[in-house]
Design a protein around this nucleic acid. Structure first.
Length: 467
DNA sequence: TGGGGTTAT
DNA sequence: ATAACCC
């Protein structure tokens, strides 16, 4: 094994293992200034196959060889490949899925806890290889392996033997030129990607795809080109082909449905249209920031860094339903959501300083996107209760949430809700040095790079931490 | 159509 | 507080 994973880094302080979140990196300089200087980055995108279904198959191996769907309400949100062969695609209605595939086995996946836990195990495992890991949803991670590649380039130069071979697919089957150092770096990146996937499989039992390229956009696009459990490296010369292969503009990650619609109104239907469109006119329509960003994306350019966020910045729990129309029902739903959330927050160890209630009201037209929310600071005396065992916090929090609810809904008038959601945010580490402080403490998370002037939430005027 | 997450304005 | 994006 020429390149064992770096099991020991420079760990000076012992930590509690169950709260060993990935730490955000200081700011990106230190030794890796060159690594981040965009020109020669090597990025790996790791994308687990049908993640929820894989987790369910690990929880219950008898499901292994059966067509499996993970159900949330009336939807099959994910299916395993057995089921996909039989026509059960993602986000299919349960009704349609059963018609297509009567033998389909369904498990309920409305509680994300098992997926969330497994997801963080994956991110932490990747973090053992390399500190720059960024999560995207529960089943994707970007890894900036530039520094690992640099080390291997040097080993290669010393060993004086230039026998490097690619792991997995090369996009477009492009010929490799070992005289091109960019090619060599990406090839080494493909070997690292293979090692990452192998580790995820042997240690966690999960399969997935990987894409290797010079930035996040291209790595992500590359990872989708060979689908279950395979990997693909994109060499620079094939970049135009890869982005031109996107038939619809919305397939560019970063261009969502809203932007796609506005672009279509401008006559922009595919990536080439967007490349060719006059920048000034695009800026006039979308604003300079969005216009410049997406036009760069259309060329496959993406300088955004791989940013490890560390522990979650918010905890939320939601439930959707056909109808909820009385205050009593609302209170019951709130209590249920709260119970789950308080558990998660207790395990996390930090204290939230803001709480938000979100509702969705029924409306036959535009059933889609009518959510509103109200948020407020959590009173200091309640914040202190968060770490503790007893649920003295529960009923005061319910009261706060009901007040937020009444800010949106006049309870004397009829109402019809189809969703309730509670979110705790503005999380801060426990105050240290207090007598009741638990045996471990979470490291003070320095704010992630580039988030220096994030607006403070609500009217929270609490003190800054000591930096 | 689900149950989450993030940043920007 | 909302709107956009991501899965």
């Amino acid at each position: 094994e020429p390149f064992p994973p770096p099991t020991e880094q420079d760990e000076e302080e012992e930590e509690d293992e169950e709260e060993d979140w990935l730490r955000p990196q200081p700011a990106g300089h230190s030794k890796s200034a060159l690594a981040r200087s965009a020109a020669h980055r090597v990025i790996v995108h790791v994308d687990l196959d049908c993640f929820y279904a894989q987790v369910e198959m690990l929880r219950n191996p008898e499901l292994r060889d059966k067509p499996l769907g993970v159900q949330q309400k009336n939807l099959v949100v994910t299916s395993n490949y057995e089921a996909r062969k039989l026509g059960v695609q993602k986000l299919m209605f349960v009704k349609d899925a059963k018609e297509k595939c009567p033998q389909l086995v369904l498990v309920n996946g409305e509680d994300l806890t098992p997926y969330r836990e497994m997801s963080y195990k994956v991110t932490e495992l990747l973090g053992e290889f390399c500190p720059l890991v960024e999560r995207l949803g529960l089943d994707e991670n970007f890894v900036d392996v530039t520094e690992m590649v640099e080390k291997r380039v040097k080993q290669l130069q010393q060993s004086a033997c230039s026998r490097v071979s690619v792991s997995g697919h090369v996009y477009n089957n492009q010929a490799i030129n070992l005289d091109d150092t960019r090619h060599v770096r990406l090839i080494l990146g493909s070997q690292i990607a293979e090692e990452l996937r192998e580790a995820v499989y042997t240690r966690l039992g999960l399969t997935g795809c990987a894409g290797v390229a010079a930035n996040k956009l291209l790595a992500k696009l590359a990872s989708g080109t060979f689908k279950p459990n395979q990997q693909t490296v994109l060499l620079p010369e094939s970049r135009p082909d890869l982005i031109r292969s996107l038939d619809r503009i919305q397939k560019v990650p970063g261009i969502g449905s809203k932007t796609a619609k506005r672009l279509e109104a401008l006559g922009i239907k595919n990536v080439c249209d967007l490349q060719a469109f006059p920048s000034a006119a695009l800026e006039a329509e979308l604003g300079a920031a969005v216009a410049q960003r997406i036009q760069k994306l259309s060329y496959g350019e993406d300088e955004s860094p791989v940013t490890p966020w560390g522990p979650p910045q918010s905890f939320s729990d939601e439930d959707s339903f056909k109808k909820c129309s009385t205050e009593v029902e609302v209170k019951e739903k709130i209590e249920e959501l709260l119970h789950n959330l308080l558990d998660r927050i207790r395990k996390d160890g930090r204290q939230p300083h803001t709480v938000r209630l979100t509702i969705r009201q029924f409306s036959s037209t535009d059933k889609w996107f009518n959510r509103e929310s109200r948020q407020c600071p959590i009173p200091p005396h309640l914040i202190q209760q968060f770490g503790k065992e007893s649920s003295d916090i529960l009923s005061p929090l319910v009261d706060i949430l009901l007040k937020l609810f009444r800010k949106m809904i006049d309870v004397h008038l009829p109402f019809h809700l189809t969703l309730l959601s509670i979110c705790f945010s503005n999380l801060k580490a426990l105050p240290r040095g207090k007598k009741g402080s638990i045996g471990f403490y979470l490291k003070q998370m320095s704010p992630p790079a580039g988030s220096a002037k994030r607006p403070r939430e609500v009217e929270d005027v609490s003190q800054e931490e000591g930096n």
